[in-house]
């Protein structure tokens, strides 16, 4: 799937981005933010990695065009809650050490 997408993005940059990118960021969002309930069991490095992935997701969601304004708004809000919680969990970890 990823390979196909990669090829697509090379061959048909415009099409590739719109056809696959939307699923792509959503999958990434689901993977990253579907783990908040385990956050306190993660190591400092794992948490830092998750936060970095959130930060990397943000501009991708921001880039959604105005026809997807609501989707953008909702997911930026959800991403913020998720990222902030990982940062909170990280703070707790660091404090405990």
């Amino acid at each position: 799937m990823l390979v196909l997408q990669f090829v697509c993005s090379l061959v048909l940059p415009g099409l590739g981005n719109t056809a696959f990118a939307s699923d792509d960021w959503k999958n990434e969002f689901n993977t990253v933010c579907g783990q908040t309930q385990n956050a306190l069991a993660f190591s400092v490095d794992e948490l830092k990695d998750l936060i970095a992935r959130c930060d990397e997701l943000k501009p991708r969601i921001k880039k959604l065009d105005d026809s997807q304004a609501t989707e953008r708004k909702v997911f930026l809000q959800r991403l913020k809650m998720c990222r902030d919680f990982y940062a909170f969990a990280l703070g707790t970890k660091v404090d405990q050490q």
Binding site: T36, Q37, M81, D84, A87, F88, D95
Partner: peptide, 15 residues
Amino acid sequence: NGCELCHPEIFLGVK
């Protein structure tokens, strides 16, 4: 409520 509904927005205090 899960976790992120309260932390850190409503309760920031970690320690």
